[in-house]
Design a binder for these strands. Structure first.
Lengths: 157, 157
DNA sequence: CATATCTCAGAGAGACTGAAATAG
DNA sequence: CCTATTTCAGTCACTCTGAGATAT
């Protein structure tokens, strides 16, 4: 009756969730998303970073450089939270932040050399987490899932 | 360049997320889950309740009655958070909470009559939110998605 | 004495808001 | 004067931990 004390933190209950909930897309998405979030967070924690750090660094890899507002739009981070993330990344010297000489309201953020090599390690960690996440699915099922989720998330306009 | 001020809170950025992230199951799940969570939360807010209230009431509908620990296991809520939820539901007279006469450590929680009628309204609200969520998918795609997510979430043992 | 259930206080990440400071 | 960007302070829902109180 009692959850064994050796269970990994939280995940999984002994008892089945209400049948009604088990059929709700929103409930299933929450469960699956929470699982994925946990796997990725644990993987990134081995480098002492969080998911928002990875998101921002990935965006910078693609954009070369960007203002904080642009970054926030790319990775769906609030301006306020993005500020904290960028400050932390700067403190670890993973990114460089400078005033834009043309428009001095903006901070131009760029990956540092160390940031690039760190990002490569993070990519590997995240890839492993993804593999664990989709492990119960066959290869074609994985593609199906990605396609279906893509449709759900697509900007409708 | 600026998100129009009439946008619904948060959702949706002007710019495309990094291509790398767009292919990650964990990222897609997070986005889709956040969307679903928002839709359901907004729906339930019209009754002044949150998702955890709905989860617990749904579990009680299926279980008839349960101790708080049993409830927590069913809906994956921490003992501590479940406590708060049950206290709030009791305050609104949606559930009844009594000491178990057989084992007086336990609180036996039961849906009240008012709780049942409220739950019926919540079910309708949640169903509408689900419909909005999966609206971009065809009927067979919706079933596929539910099946795939079910596999991902299944207890592996 | 040991264990189970509930309760309480609080930490930590994530999402969000409002307002000030600075620059265009 | 009005707007854009960054920064700061703080709220809120959610997840989780540790410790105490009460009952078995």
């Amino acid at each position: 009756m009692t959850p064994s004390p050796s269970d990994p933190p939280s995940r999984r209950a002994d008892t089945r969730a209400p049948a009604k909930l088990q059929q709700l897309p929103s409930w299933l998405l929450s469960q699956a998303s929470a699982h994925g979030t946990r796997l990725v967070a644990e993987a990134l924690a081995t480098e002492g970073l969080r998911r928002s750090h990875y998101r921002v660094m990935s965006a910078l890899e693609e954009l070369e450089s960007a203002s904080q507002i642009e970054l926030g739009a790319h990775v769906w981070l609030d301006r306020s939270d993005l500020h904290g993330v960028v400050v932390e990344l700067e403190r670890r010297e993973l990114v460089v932040r400078e005033r834009d000489p043309i428009d001095r309201r903006r901070n131009v953020v760029t990956l540092s050399a160390g940031g690039r090599t760190t990002l490569a390690r993070l990519d590997a960690l995240v890839a492993t987490a993804q593999a664990q996440l989709v492990e119960p699915l066959s290869a074609p099922e994985r593609e199906q899932l990605i396609a279906l989720l893509g449709k759900l998330v697509e900007t409708p306009d």
